[in-house]
Design a protein around this nucleic acid. Structure first.
Lengths: 366, 366
DNA sequence: GTGAAAGCGCTAACAA
DNA sequence: TTGTTAGCGCTTTCAC
């Protein structure tokens, strides 16, 4: 298809016999212009079907009214909810969002950030991938003077804004609850230790154990990823250990879902044989016959706060200090870990057969 | 924060003692430039940390390598999956996506389209809201020569590309299946009739009824929306009718979920008391004790096709004909509508009590 | 192979 | 209140 002709400021100016500067000002509601001409200009603009060219506008005005967002996933309860909030706040403030998705791929993340910088976004909000290790692009971002806010998946660099859950405290509360309920044999499926949220949630777990003198058993601390399949496999691995724990804390809800499924297939009852809790929740929880008690994250608030912090950074003309916001979590009890009932039993577990069953491709929207 | 200095083509040119044109060409791999200078230019560009300014580039080159996308929702299995595919294809083709979310609000949709037009996106992909009636902006889009592809939520205008499910045929297949199974008392929860998908799915339903001489009972055709709450309420309404149907077809999966929940609360068994099917599925289906048989939509393919059609439209320099793609669906049988077992029974239904219970706020990610 | 000139559509600073 | 002059950083055309 062919690009139609563009209506420009000059076109309007020509039609009215004024200069294009007058038109430009009138259209932007600049106080210089008289009510009278402003009205005339706007009318002609409308008649001609004028659309401002942001490329040109931004080139001369040096800002784009646009915020670049980089997230690892989108078809995922947590991220899609957070993003929706980000959009809402952006809309309220007349900003446009350019959302990019890294698909948990560091290369792609880098590509997108470069691209966003080239688009001259006014600021960036990013939630890094699980494999992001090269941080040089972020120092580049700093050098270019583009405000950057990390959200949820933050990077340990105090020179950028961060907005995150209280991962450590939230996990502590959950594990403490399990201990108060009476459990002493505690396992952790921690996701990845090299990822911030994995590390923080692990700390919350060990904090609680130390606080209450619960021994930490290395064979009950398993790390392989944050997805449903990981939880599934981790649980099978757990079943291979000498003794079963009474309670398992999962670093994410999808992992808990994997555990749930594995247990179901093995004929292990939750919470009668083993009790569980997790960090975060998802849509599926409502439909489980045993809904999993969890640490509830303020998902929407995370998005809203990230945007607010970012907008503030844009406004701040000086090199103001970066802000580090930690949002509190709440314990949300459902059908697990209500009271001590789990009595671990010996499992007749055949790894080979089950691992095969585990290979069913599963999407993790949760 | 303050914007840092920008490294420009001239900076690089100055450093090398060449003109900025040479630099521009070298950086873009233009064949004019010798291997030698190209190499030197690239090195200096890297050393200086040069980032091309797309605003400037696009202003002179007249295209932005950017595609604007407008969807009604994002925290929704269907849309988030489709969007993810759109991103994938865009990435493969070196396009950047500017995603906007209308939140089912026609005003917002209009705002975003205008904004995208002003950003001079190379093309648009849009899935309209349930309340979009004013189509004038789309003729404006056509006048501006910007290729536009409607996806899923299409608008009846043959002058634009459309990519959609075979809503009518898919529904026909499902209802036909229900009839083959032996049901003759069929109800439809159709969402909204003024929305294309609602209309098409209704047609599929009536097609099947007519084909098999099944009488259509107006009191069993209910329209109130596509959400879970709508399905819930529709089912309650259905329960008020003189006689209960044997089978209910829901226009969307969230609606079926609402029916499921309402039935559960009323003590009505699915599929023993009433059998159901729906168009589309969602994550939750895996976790229902009675998984709902459905018409499976090719969600990812919808996104991929929409992008491909759009890219083709961009490439086509002439006013090529718009394309209209209809993607086939497949019947996916789970635990409902397997064989005729539903025998509707008289329900002891108390509207007031239940309608109160219905007011629980529920998110529909499905 | 390289570069000078012109201009994309707009806004900012200043002058009138 | 309005207009003039200069760019923003880049690409395109065309001459060298």
């Amino acid at each position: 298809m062919k690009k139609g002709l563009q209506v420009t400021l000059s076109d309007i100016a020509g039609k009215l016999g004024v200069s294009k500067v007058t038109v430009s000002k009138a259209l932007r509601g600049h106080p210089d212009i008289s009510r009278e001409t402003a009205k005339r200009v706007k009318k002609v603009a409308k008649d001609l079907g004028y659309f401002p060219n942001y490329m040109a506008r931004n080139l001369s005005s040096k800002h784009s009214n646009t915020i670049g967002v980089v997230v690892p996933k989108i078809a995922h309860f947590f991220f899609s909810t957070m993003i929706e909030t980000i959009y809402d706040v952006a809309f309220e403030n007349n900003y446009e969002i350019i959302l990019t998705v890294s698909q948990e791929d560091a290369k792609r993340e880098l590509y997108h950030i470069k691209s966003l910088l080239s688009m001259r976004v006014d600021a960036l909000i990013v939630s890094v991938t699980q494999q992001t290790t090269d941080l040089s692009i972020f120092t580049k971002v700093r050098e270019m003077g583009v405000p950057l806010t990390f959200v949820d998946r933050v990077v340990d660099d105090p020179s950028f804004n961060t907005v995150a859950n209280d991962d450590r405290g939230g996990t502590f509360k959950a594990v403490e609850h399990a201990i108060n309920v009476g459990y002493t044999k505690l396992a952790l499926l921690g996701g990845f230790e090299h990822v911030n949220i994995g590390r923080q949630r692990t700390l919350g777990f060990t904090d609680a154990c130390e606080r209450y003198n619960i021994p930490i058993r290395p064979e009950w601390m398993i790390y392989s990823g944050f997805g449903e399949e990981d939880g599934y496999n981790d649980f099978l691995k757990l079943c291979e250990s000498e003794e079963m724990p009474e309670f398992v804390f999962c670093a994410t809800f999808p992992m808990a879902l994997g555990v749930y499924r594995a247990a179901e297939e093995l004929g292990i009852k939750i919470p009668a044989d083993i009790d569980i809790m997790c960090f975060g929740s998802g849509i599926a929880n409502r439909f489980l016959s045993t809904r999993i008690s969890c640490v509830e994250q303020p998902v929407a608030e995370l998005g809203r706060t990230a945007m607010e912090v970012t907008l503030a950074s844009i406004q701040a003309t000086d090199e103001s200090k970066p802000r580090h916001v930690v949002l509190g979590t709440t314990l949300k009890l459902a059908d697990t870990c209500i009271r001590k009932i789990a009595v671990p039993r010996k499992i007749n577990y055949k790894p080979a057969a089950l691992l095969e069953a585990a290979s069913t491709g599963i999407d993790t929207l949760e």
